[in-house]
C-alpha cells in the first residue's frame, strides 16, 4: 500500500511526494495513534481479562470487510495518481470518487457497528477495553471522514485540470493522507479486533 507513495511523479527520488506540511501533519497523527496504541498495550498488559472478555464480543466479519474497503480505497487513490501522471484526467477523477465511495462504505458499516454497541449500552465509561475500543475506532472513524473530505475536495478541484504531470503535489498530498488513514486502520484492526 505504501508502494504507491513511491510511484509519485516527483523527478527527484529523494523527495517526499506531496506537500511537506502534510507530512508534518501525518507524523503528528501517527504519533498520536502510536501513543494511543502503546497506551492500549500497557492497559491490556495490566488487565488482560477485561480486554479478552470485551474482544470476545467483537464480530470480525464487518471489520474485515472494512479493512478491504480501505485498502481498496488506497489502491484506487494510487491508481488515480498514476492516471494523473499519464494525464488521463477523467479516469483519474473517477478513481478519486471511487475512493470516496469506498470510504463511504466503511463509514456506513462502521456506523452500523457503533449503533449495535450503543444499543448494547456500551459507552466510554463501560470499562477500560470499551474505552479504548470506542476511543480508537471513533477517533479513526473521524479520520476516514476527513480523508474523504480531502479526496473529495481534490476531485472537485481536479475538474479544471489543474493536476497535470509535474504538478501533482495537491493530489499526492491527499493520497498520502489517505494512505495514513489506511495504515492506522490496519494496525488498529490487528490490535483491537484480531490479537487476542
Amino acid at each position: 500500500m505504501n508502494q504507491s507513495v513511491t510511484l509519485s511523479a516527483s523527478a527527484n527520488p529523494r523527495e517526499v511526494p506531496g506537500d511537506l506540511a502534510m507530512w508534518f501533519f501525518i507524523l503528528a497523527e501517527l504519533l498520536v495513534f502510536g501513543v494511543f496504541f502503546l497506551a492500549y498495550g500497557y492497559a491490556r498488559a495490566h488487565d488482560p481479562a477485561t480486554f479478552v472478555a470485551g474482544q470476545r464480543q467483537l464480530a470480525l466479519g464487518v471489520p474485515t470487510v472494512n479493512t478491504l474497503l480501505l485498502i481498496a480505497g488506497s489502491a484506487s487513490v494510487s491508481a488515480a495518481v498514476r492516471a494523473f501522471v499519464l494525464d488521463r484526467q477523467r479516469t483519474a477523477r473517477r478513481l478519486l470518487w471511487l475512493t470516496v465511495a469506498l470510504g463511504m462504505g466503511f463509514v456506513v458499516l462502521k456506523c452500523g457497528e457503533f449503533a449495535g454497541k450503543f444499543a448494547a449500552g456500551i459507552t466510554l465509561s463501560s470499562d477500560t477495553f470499551w474505552m479504548f475500543y470506542l476511543s480508537l475506532t471513533f477517533f479513526h472513524f473521524l479520520h476516514v471522514i476527513l480523508g474523504m473530505v480531502i479526496i473529495g475536495a481534490v476531485a472537485v478541484y481536479a475538474r479544471d485540470g489543474r493536476y497535470r504531470p509535474g504538478q501533482l503535489a495537491g493530489v499526492e498530498t491527499a493520497a498520502a493522507y489517505w494512505h495514513m488513514v489506511d495504515l492506522v486502520w490496519v494496525v488498529l484492526f490487528a490490535l483491537v479486533y484480531v490479537a487476542r
Binding site: A28, V32, V35, A39, A43, L124, S125, M131, S135
Partner: peptide
C-alpha cells in the same frame, strides 16, 4: 469520567512538540 486520564495523558504527551 476516567477516560480523560487516557485522552488527556496521550494528547498532552505531545504538547511539548
Amino acid at each position: 469520567p476516567g477516560y480523560w486520564q487516557w485522552w488527556g495523558s496521550i494528547f498532552s504527551a505531545i504538547e511539548p512538540i
